[in-house]
Design a protein around this nucleic acid. Structure first.
Lengths: 136, 136
DNA sequence: CAATCTGTATTATAATATATAATACAAACA
DNA sequence: TGTTTGTATTATATATTATAATACAGATTG
């Protein structure tokens, strides 16, 4: 199963769907151009409403992770950033991406440090995650 | 001013307050035992409701960042983890903290990679944030 | 003592967010 | 010709978020 929904979570269902699909793409379990279940299929399999799935798909589409076509349905669309720009760093798009996620990273590091997580442990955890995502 | 609230943000106000106080503690702008404004003062200064501030304070208290006393008000309380456990790594509390923030970190790294952020750039950004937080 | 501050509790109200339900439609496809 | 696709609509229900107006007990201060 692609999705593991937690109905008692405070994270909205449509957000959980979005997050898990982004993660699946990053881990290579979903590949560029690959078709994902229709809103109805995923809704039925997960026991949720069709429009909840649609909301997640719309969100993914706006972020560029999904391409939606009436004829072919919804397909994974890996941003050009990760394809063309991965070779030569320092692109304007990349630095924009870094600046966008910086506040979240600052907060995450703050919480980590205040719970005794050393810089070394944090960085090695990052490396571990990178390594797992890259190997697939 | 301690707080910079964004009323058009999708992040709830009480959550913004909580996040910014955690960040201020990590950056040393708020120190252990330091008193923070009363719920009424902060509410008036920020133009929001008293109970909204109270909700943020309650959240911070539950997480261990705040100690609240009727006589002395609300004071910053830095968790013991970051004081005692910072010297010797690999504590059970610390690994628990890492495991708790791992899902968020996985998602953050996923989004970064899919936007062309290299491991080197991500790690150097982490180092930069660590450095700024530690120097204060 | 009287006034003022502290956090907290209560009740009510409003707006927004989230999720579901039941249909419906046009486009594409087998 | 059905079936599937995404999408739109309308209605309903619930939860979350935020405000407003009070009130109370405990502590501090003038």
């Amino acid at each position: 199963m692609l999705l593991e929904l937690d109905f008692s979570s405070q994270t909205p269902i449509y957000q959980q769907i979005r997050n898990q699909i982004v993660l699946a793409v990053a881990e290579g379990r979903l590949k560029d151009g690959q078709r994902i279940p229709s809103v109805r299929t995923l809704a039925d399999e997960s026991g949720i409403n069709m429009m909840t799935v649609n909301k997640a798909y719309q969100l993914l589409r706006q972020e560029g992770y999904l391409q939606i076509d009436r004829r072919s349905g919804a397909r994974i669309s890996i941003p050009v950033s990760s394809i063309f720009l991965s070779s030569h760093p320092e692109g304007a798009v990349v630095t924009a991406a870094v600046n966008q996620l910086r506040p979240q990273l600052e907060l995450l590091i703050s919480e980590a440090r205040l719970h005794g997580v050393s810089q070394e442990l944090f960085l090695s955890t990052c490396c571990e995650i990178f390594h797992r995502q890259k190997e697939v």
